[in-house]
Computed example of a mutant assay.
Amino acid sequence: MRNQIIKLIFLSILTTTYFGCSSDSNSDDCETITCLNGGTFVDCECECPLGYTGNNCSTQVRPSKVIITKAIVKVFPNTDNGEFWDLSIPDAEDALPDIYITLQDSNLITIYDSPTFYENVISGEGTFFEFTLTPPVELTVYDNPFLVNIWDYDTTGEDDFMTSFGFFAYTSNNNFPDIITVVSQSDEILVDLEVTYEW
């Protein structure tokens, strides 16, 4: 009789163990999800990287800041409608533009004005002109475009406006690029903005 009781207890333990390990409670048997945007599948769910959320990491999270750290000027107009930018200077080389940049918000308020310029430069020869923004420009409003302006610095008069074009700091499907390219062929401008993000 005692042996039968021990056998029943042992059988009960085995039965509980077998039926208790159903597929519902075993994480190895959960449905695999394809995680997007660099997410990883861990413990039956996607662990999303910064900037993404949702069941499969497909939804962007609006950043709290877009931070511009550098502007690289690649294309600008070499002449002012066919004339040198500095007509008062007789030497053709010295009459080339002395470029610098400014950034403006949608209300045309200047949010960055470069303290330095490149002297007597020309566009189109594979030389790029870098402006490190110190301190970096932090943008927190994204509904309206910003402007990149290129100027010719003049020592004897007012600076000459050369060209300008707009850009959006963030859109809901831009996938957080490291570089925002501001380009317009008709406006003769190509500027790469190096950016980082905070959430």
Rank of each mutant, 00 (worst) to 15 (best):
L50H: 09
G51F: 02
T53S: 13
T53R: 09
G54L: 07
N56D: 14
C57V: 10
S58K: 07
T59H: 11
T59W: 02
T59R: 05
Q60E: 15
Q60K: 01
Q60V: 09
Q60P: 06
V61I: 15
R62I: 12
P63E: 02
P63A: 05
S64N: 12
S64C: 01
K65A: 12
K65Y: 13
K65W: 03
V66E: 05
V66C: 07
V66L: 10
V66Y: 08
I68T: 08
T69I: 09
T69F: 02
K70W: 02
K70R: 12
K70M: 13
K70S: 12
K70Q: 13
A71M: 05
A71W: 03
A71T: 07
I72G: 01
V73S: 02
K74C: 08
V75M: 08
V75K: 09
V75D: 08
V75T: 15
F76V: 06
P77N: 05
P77H: 06
T79S: 10
D80R: 06
D80M: 06
D80N: 12
D80S: 13
D80I: 00
D80F: 03
N81Q: 12
G82C: 01
E83W: 04
W85P: 04
W85Q: 06
W85N: 07
W85E: 10
D86C: 08
D86Q: 09
D86K: 10
D86H: 14
D86L: 10
L87N: 08
S88I: 06
S88W: 11
S88L: 09
I89T: 09
I89V: 13
P90H: 00
D91A: 04
D91I: 02
A92K: 08
E93I: 15
D94N: 13
D94A: 14
D94M: 11
D94P: 00
A95C: 07
A95D: 06
A95W: 04
L96Q: 15
L96P: 00
P97H: 04
P97R: 03
D98P: 01
I99H: 02
I99G: 03
I99C: 05
Y100D: 01
Y100W: 07
I101C: 04
T102Y: 01
T102E: 10
L103F: 15
L103E: 05
Q104M: 11
D105T: 09
D105R: 03
S106R: 00
L108I: 07
I109M: 14
I109Q: 12
T110N: 10
T110P: 02
T110Q: 14
T110M: 08
I111Q: 12
I111P: 09
Y112F: 15
Y112H: 14
D113P: 00
S114H: 00
S114K: 00
P115Y: 08
P115V: 08
T116L: 01
T116R: 03
T116N: 11
